[in-house]
Design a protein around this nucleic acid. Structure first.
Lengths: 210, 210, 210, 210
DNA sequence: CATGAATGAGACTTCATTCAT
DNA sequence: AATGAATGAAGTCTCATTCAT
């Protein structure tokens, strides 16, 4: 019986954690760190304020946990989707699609990552890059393969990846600023079109930039 | 003499305003709105706390003034630079260069615009788009001209501009997250290369996306 | 057990309220609204500053609560005492005695009601007259009965009551100004003597005023 | 020329003083001491803030000067009027009338004297009693004369005067609380009627109190 | 002498965190 | 283990007073 009890206990703890993180994610995203009150998170989670502190040392740790969970999810989601695909270009396209739809589904996280540079710059950046570079190796391989096969141009891979990341993050940022008033994934086709083929049609002019 | 006095007074007032806005911009950018203390701004400006409140009704108004001044500057800077150029592609490239180097020079503003979505979402968005769309008309003309002359592809102009904006903002965002550890304007060549000509070399594969 | 707990909780809340109101009443009376610090009230009540704000939204609301409680007490005290008496003149005398001894016992309230016309004019006046006219109906009946029975002169009742109120309040005001250096209730006999029978002895001269 | 200049200077100083006291009186009365800003007084007086401080050491001293000037006026006004009359009862009636109409004319002072017990209790009380007892001697003589001539009852004179003062102050207090919504001097007839002859008609009952 | 810009002490209020129940 | 009442440090803003012009 003891063991079953202990299992139950652990499960309950797990559920509580999730409850709290969900509530925290929602409110942090809407109001930002400073304007979020722990009271509000407790209420939304349907728990007492003291309980929050039993699960997270303080407000900052709770915020970090929200960020960590989000980026961990993001990384896993991308890896799973990418591994299903063979063709390098399609892989890159899948990364783009998965990235955008992840933030569309978890729009809470958008706010959390965009605000709060100040106090959490280091934390977010660390975590973000842990995720980012966790994926970057994979991305590098994909780009390398595509260059090797002569599919894409022989450009500096790091820079290309950094531009791609900037492009996606920028779209999410604009979407957030415009109050998420449109479907983020609708931008996918234009983004991949421009990223892959550019906007110049005139061959002669294109040469100037290649 | 009176008139000279009054002129002097006005000038001093102008100087104070600038002093305060400079200090505020710096600290708001570093610490974000919530963690910035008015006292700190006063000290950095070499003024008393009360003086800040003599010039700006409260902390929020001061913050907004920082944003307003920044975006106004940005708009003017871009318009001036673009008007010097004739060729449409070069114009677009100039917008990109000017935008990036503006934030490089006024890196204070970067933080201010990136944080504080929550409390100032409306204010920033309004101002940002006032600036943004103030420039967008000009951008549309440039794109239209380029399409008309057959220089660039016949794509949806609004979407192209929004992708360009996202691309630039995303770069700035990444730069900020990476602690401005490199020269932002160094990214210009790769960005314009990709934006203008894309990354696919293989003609056949390129067709899939065009 | 739960119910007992909840009852205890409620009781504690009641006790805190009273603690705070008592402390507030004392300090507001001594120092007036503006010079009273919430800190001071908290200390006197043996509570933290934050606790005061848990019970009362802000300093103004706390002040109003002090006034409200005081006037409610006063009204009840008077009604209870007056109902014990039959004879109209004795009733009026009882109102006078009860009014004076109420302020003698609750001298805190004296200061509170006398100061703070400015900021709380409306609030105090409203509450005061709520109390005042709550009692005035009763007073009118008493005067009417006394006139009907030929005990007192056929004067304008409203005016008589307003003079009586002024007389009592004026005595309290003088007593307050003179630092409560004598027993307020000692004035009762002379006041009732003058109010009831006047000061003129000479019959002929008395006629001039009747 | 020097002497004329100096005279002019002195006169200007006098005018400034009056300007400031008038403005101060008005605002202190409306808003009370704490809520009155020196800025407001300066503006109403049409002077710079610094000038106020040239004439009065600080805000408290200015307030006291307002009170002092008011009570000095009151005392003089009463003395002048009373000296015109012969008959003792008429003299008392004249004090009552003059007192009430003084506050009716200088309603600014009403507020000033009623609020601000707290910080100025001592100051006001001192000044008030300086005025009060400055007049009380005169009043005592009047009462003594009236008693000597058998016109009024042989009551304790101090008490009678204190009741009279309370009665008048109470009327002014009620008038202030009711927002000066009626003519204060209209209360004179009923007040003097009650004060002089009382309210009991029934001879037998009257005996109970005499 | 008059002015009003500058100052900073001081007061209210909020809210993260603790801890007794 | 869960709760939420209590706390007080910390932050914003006001305004009497000063002083350079």
């Amino acid at each position: 019986m003891r063991i079953a009890d202990r299992a139950k206990r652990k499960e309950l703890t797990q559920i509580r954690q999730t409850q709290i993180l969900d509530a925290a994610s929602e409110i942090f995203s809407k109001k930002g760190f400073a304007h979020t009150q722990v009271d509000g998170i407790a209420n939304l989670a349907g728990l007492g304020k003291g309980t929050i502190y039993r699960y997270f040392k303080d407000k900052k740790k709770l915020f970090s946990a929200v960020v960590d969970r989000g980026l961990e999810d993001l990384k896993n989601t991308i890896l799973i989707e990418v591994d299903k695909i063979e063709d390098p270009l399609k892989k890159i396209e899948t990364v783009m699609r998965t990235y955008l739809s992840f933030f569309e589904r978890n729009s809470d996280l958008t706010g959390v990552l965009i605000h709060e540079q100040s106090s959490f710059q280091k934390r977010i950046a660390e975590r973000y890059f842990e995720h980012y570079y966790g994926n970057v190796d994979k991305m590098k391989q994909i780009f390398k393969e595509a260059i090797g096969k002569g599919i894409i141009k022989d450009i500096n891979i790091d820079n290309a990846i950094s531009v791609l990341a900037g492009l996606l993050n920028g779209l999410i940022y604009m979407w957030q600023i415009e109050n998420r008033s449109y479907k983020l994934s609708d931008k996918l086709s234009i983004v991949s079109k421009i990223f892959f083929t550019g906007i110049i049609r005139n061959e002669k002019r294109r040469k100037e930039y290649e």
